[in-house]
């Protein structure tokens, strides 16, 4: 067993989420920490009230544009290596509120998301599955070479730019280094 495996075994079994709920998904997140679903079995019951002590951000619910700067700032303040679960349809894409002028169409426009967890809202079992997938991901993460975490790469960003409220929309509307609008292939008509 290598040092890397011991290190990953330790940190994948003590993922501490940030205590941070946005909408209805947060209720399911709370339920998954309670006795019936008991997320403590996976070492993740310690929801930290400060980003300095957390290494997982569960974006649980609709992200309004007013909330985006706060989320990105909290993500920046978390200690590396840090991970993000986008929980529910809203955090992934805006979900049922996608057409709303004030709803962000997916948090992956501003911060790198590791696990996308669909559902509206996802059941606690689904959140636990997402957490287990994240644990597998952490356990397989090498510390050297190409696949190493971002904070170990010299060119890796330590902060993600925080958008501000512009005249019409958030500025910039996305972080082009991690997300670009999908290009729609259209047949060329002559």
């Amino acid at each position: 067993m290598s040092l890397n495996e011991i290190y990953n075994w330790g940190r994948s079994n003590s993922v501490w989420p940030l205590q941070f709920g946005l909408a209805c998904c947060a209720i399911e997140m709370i339920a998954s920490t309670m006795a019936r679903y008991d997320m403590a079995r996976f070492g993740s019951e310690v929801f930290r009230p400060s980003p300095r002590q957390a290494d997982l951000m569960i974006v649980s619910g609709t992200v309004t544009k007013k909330m985006v700067p706060q989320i990105v700032r909290l993500y920046n303040q978390m200690a590396e290596p840090k991970y993000v679960i986008a929980m529910g349809a809203c955090a992934i894409s805006g979900g049922p509120f996608k057409q709303g002028y004030n709803v962000l169409k997916g948090i992956d426009r501003y911060i790198p998301v590791d696990i996308h967890l669909p559902g509206c809202p996802p059941k606690p079992e689904a959140l636990i599955h997402a957490l287990m997938s994240l644990q597998k991901m952490i356990a397989d993460q090498p510390l050297t070479g190409e696949g190493r975490p971002r904070h170990l790469k010299p060119e890796g960003a330590s902060e993600f730019p925080i958008p501000h409220q512009g005249e019409q929309d958030l500025e910039p509307p996305c972080n082009p280094h991690i997300w670009r609008p999908p290009a729609i292939p259209r047949p060329v008509t002559a």
Partner: peptide, 22 residues
């Protein structure tokens, strides 16, 4: 371990006071 596997990368936002994201 920290010297090799948790390089320091401070920044103005990261080092700012914690105040619930505001």
């Amino acid at each position: 371990w920290a010297r090799f596997f948790s390089p320091r990368k401070p920044g103005p936002e990261k080092s700012s006071n914690y105040e619930c994201g505001l």
